[in-house]
Design a protein around this nucleic acid. Structure first.
Ligand code: FES
Ligand code: FES
Lengths: 144, 144
DNA sequence: GCCATATGATACTATCTTCGTATCATATGC
DNA sequence: GCATATGATACGAAGATAGTATCATATGGC
């Protein structure tokens, strides 16, 4: 399950992708536009900077911008940056030791198979694709 | 994310599928064989009976058995029985109202697409298939 | 230089969820 | 009638989640 924190991270990245090439954008602007509690968002952005998905500039006129092209950032990148354990269907997918049946559990194989598919799908969804997909409904988007 | 409770439910169903046609099996036996806390399992089994995945017999010689053929019970059935909100990648997949962007959020569509796939996959995995898959490693299985 | 504005870093708290336990009631076979 | 089994809830500890608060530090413009 994608947590709300990760959901916010995705929305923030999406907003910054929409305004890529417009220079640094402040956390306050993102918070208001995307309807995210400001202080909560600050901590999230800090993390995204630390994971090198964003670059920040301090001081007046400072703010955030994408560290890479929107084509080069996937949903998986964001999800993994926020939560190292990602979405994982079942914890045994990560640590099979948790399941005492792990040496012979057929469920494990099936879940891993699905998990691999999910990760591949998330990895294939770039911010650019999402932006493009939304651009057809430009009117609905919060304007700067 | 599949919770541990649901994981236990799957293991219990799997054990009962392995011993389908052998009459009622007690919760105590399942608990010991599958390494699940007895009282916790009791509550889980109660739920599975309520959702009509299991049928129970009370009193001496009583216990549980599958309500349907192992071919007719999927992982999705079990997961849905334990947690109505299933695995859901993101809560907005369920209640789009939660996301203020829901009317135009491209993420939503993508997540729903993946979710549908995951559910279809889980729905295609029957207990019979899992039992069959494990039967090649019969030696590893806890014996009755 | 000073100050408004911006991020960096971390500590703290309330609430919810998860995992598990405990208790008592009820049914049934021998 | 009694051991054995499930039915139904209530309770509790621990952890995760969502959000707040506080301080430090950098920087552009006056
Ligand atoms: S290894 Fe995951 S349920 Fe068994
Ligand atoms: S509707 Fe789910 S992230 Fe927007």
């Amino acid at each position: 399950m994608i947590t709300r924190e990760t959901d916010y991270a995705i929305r923030a990245m999406l907003y910054l992708a929409h305004h890529a090439g417009e220079g640094a954008i402040s956390a306050a602007e993102v918070a208001e536009a995307m309807d995210i509690p400001y202080r909560f968002l600050r901590r999230i952005l800090l993390r995204l900077v630390g994971k090198e998905l964003l670059v920040s500039t301090r001081g007046k006129q400072g703010g955030l911008r994408l560290a890479r092209n929107p084509e080069m950032v996937s949903l998986l990148d964001i999800v993994q940056a926020m939560d190292p354990e990602v979405i994982t269907l079942n914890s045994c997918v990560l640590k099979s030791a948790l399941c005492t049946r792990s040496s012979y559990c057929a469920v494990h194989d099936e879940l891993c198979r699905i998990q691999i598919f999910v990760n591949a799908e998330l990895g294939a969804i770039s911010l650019a694709r999402l932006v493009k997909h939304e651009s057809g409904r430009e009117d609905d988007l919060p304007q700067r």
